[in-house]
Amino acid sequence: MNGILSRKKRSFFTKHDIECTALLLPEIIGFFVFTIYPIIWAVQKAFYYYNGIQSRTTFVGLDNFKALFTTNGAYWSALGNSFLFTIGKLPFEIPIALILAIIVSKNYKGFKASRVILYLPTIISVAVVGLVFTNMFSYFGYINAVLMKLGIIKSGIDFFASKGSAMMVIIIASIWQTFGINTIYFLVALSNIPTEVYESAKLDGAGTLVTFFKITLPLISPVFATILLLAINGSLQTGDIILTLTNGAPGGQTEVVMTYLLKSMVPGFAQTNADIGFGCAVAMVNAVIFSLVALIYIRLSKKVVSYF
């Protein structure tokens, strides 16, 4: 490879530089046209009133941001719901994923095949998942019928009529859809622990729980932190499953950040005369909030991991 570099050292860009850059052209063009330009566009629009009609566009300065922080409650309740969803989901999903990963990491009969099945839901489209769970949890649906037959409830629950139960269905469906990927991540982390460590622990007479808390957990803690970061990030940015399940029902009470943003400015979801300028301002503020959450998490997790 050095040969290519040294052959033409006189000009600033060698033939090799040009060839490599040319090979990356689709990505580089895409970067400028479909990434940088849209971001600049959106940042600029955040300071305008813009409803899609060019001639009605007016410069409003910081008004969009002022409105967001003073009068507009819809975004903040959506943000609250995003956190509620995350806090409601991860305490179940992460332990489920970890326990199942520990089980299927062992070499008993059928465990290897189980790994393939546990990941199955992740393969199916979110649109389909939303559909199936909507049907199962509908008022006259299967879950209600079974619960009534078992005598757990007397009359059907209208799951999508109150915020709490709607959120519960969303969380169940979402755990179903994504825990498999975390199981796989935990499996990789577990497979990196040398077996000698377990053997010597066994010789020292360590029981199952002691082994788990004193060996497994500390050894996977750096990966655990990464998995949790990805999961927190993913949950906060979840929107698709909520669109297909409740679409914000009842009355926008399960609206989360991503569905709110889609409905405030994306064609097909937003109203025709929606104030896109305001939507862009919200998107900017939201991007900052989500990055802050990630940064705070990284700070905290470093401290926690260092305890082990």
Binding site: F13, D17, T21, P38, M265, A283, N286, A287, A294
Partner: peptide, 30 residues
């Protein structure tokens, strides 16, 4: 395999993109 000027820059920029989410604000200009 390439050893070209801008390799680190482009690689860094592309990786950073993974963490950018403008929540749909980029859809309309696209």
């Amino acid at each position: 395999r390439g050893r070209f000027k801008g390799k680190k820059l482009w690689f860094g920029v592309f990786t950073a993109l993974m963490f950018v989410n403008f929540g749909g604000a980029n859809i309309l200009p696209t």
